[in-house]
Nucleic acid binder design. Structure first.
Lengths: 225, 225
DNA sequence: GTCAATGATTTTGTATACAAGAATTTGGAG
DNA sequence: CTCCAAATTCTTGTATACAAAATCATTGAC
């Protein structure tokens, strides 16, 4: 019998699935059986299907007609592409933030930066991971472009699991913090160009050379459009 | 009785709804009644609901719980924000295209540019509208970043209806073509910085001043985050 | 022993039934 | 006539039934 759900179940469904995918507890390529999911969440297939469709448009899930849903695979190529776009968007956010930040924005940025500094000094990578996110959110906010902020946040979330890898690099925390310094200097100096460059370089993986290389590798097959 | 649908109905549903919204035949704020839509498409509510959910994640439709779906409203503020992001993304695409375009890309760009020239000379605004789109697609392709190309295409489609307004401006076609010239020069010269600037300026509405103004207007209410 | 074909099983896609919240209408009081 | 409240109607949200495709297993031939 059509029972009613405890109100928040609707959102919980999608968020929990999304989270499971983003945190990697559901691995890429894994099949998402509607019946199992329905049983696991204690609902019927209907809301599960709707959640899956939404996750599909969000790019987290791939649905092959009549063949079910799987967690979307992210090849290294696509991953690099996404980091590239992320770098571009962050750059734009930085440029706008430099031009538009208010006094409140400035203070929020400095606070976030200070929190990062303390995490570095404490050598606390987890804390830095968190405060780094806050720092970037503060930049989005200072751009005074809500749509841009949404796009950045979504991509940020999407790339989160892969960013952990980056942190493994030797001294990444110290380097990252130094880059933050350059970013915040440029923003406070209201130098849009410099802020954009600083942020782009901060986000991009190991400089553009790697991305160039992968993109041109793939060019052989994809070729002229 | 659960009938089977003519295969392509599934995609037709979403595409037709999406199209109706993007072309403006469904106006912002309009209610999307599930039963009416179901009747109109000759299906049950189930596939309609799934399509609506997808359009919701795509940002075309707004669903208030228990209160149905309406075509998403786009305030001028958000619109300006989206144009700003579009400009940023196109800029990145231009930068990458300048660095990465192959010989085939170069030829495709020149062909698209030439088609634009002919439309201008013929004074055919509709043709220019179409060829302009091809020109931009060629740039996306030349960036050799499929994810970026998708993002650009999506935003492009989304902003299409509002771009028509821009074309009303005096001599827009001639100005636009001149800007294309600058873009293509920079790309062929493999000057990423210049290509990025040229494209950004090409896409942006009336220079940044307007966007700055609107953003700062809104800053009064949204304030520090 | 391997492979192919056919039948059984599983799983997706759609329709429909029903429950509960929202909108609307009607009836009455002031 | 206007305004408010209760009841009716409408619409959404979920569960379930059923059809058809896809997958899997079994069996038979080579």
């Amino acid at each position: 019998m059509p029972r009613v759900l405890p109100e928040a179940t609707k959102a919980r469904l999608r968020d929990e699935l999304e989270n499971a995918i983003l945190t990697g507890s559901l691995l890429p390529g894994q099949r998402l059986d509607e019946v199992s999911l329905a049983k696991r969440f204690g609902v019927s297939r209907t809301p599960i299907r709707e959640a899956l469709r939404q996750l599909e448009t969000a790019g987290l899930v791939e649905i092959r007609p009549r063949r079910g849903a799987v967690v979307a695979e992210l090849g290294t190529e696509r991953l690099v592409q996404m980091f590239e776009v992320m770098a571009g968007l962050e750059g734009v956010a930085g440029r706008l933030a430099a031009r538009r930040h208010t006094e409140e924005d400035r203070q929020a940025l400095l606070r976030a930066h200070e929190a990062c500094r303390q995490a570095v000094q404490a050598g606390d990578a987890d804390a830095y991971y968190y405060e780094n996110e806050m720092f970037h959110l503060a930049i989005y906010a200072a751009s005074h472009n809500a749509f841009l902020a949404e796009q950045c946040t979504t991509l940020h979330r999407r790339l989160k699991p892969y960013r952990r890898l980056q942190l493994r690099v030797r001294n990444r925390m110290v380097t990252s913090f130094a880059e933050h310094e350059a970013v915040i200097d440029a923003i406070i100096a209201m130098d849009g160009d410099r802020a954009e460059r600083a942020l782009r370089d901060h986000v991009v993986i190991q400089g553009d050379r790697f991305a160039d290389f992968v993109a041109l590798l793939a060019a052989g097959t994809t070729a002229a459009a």
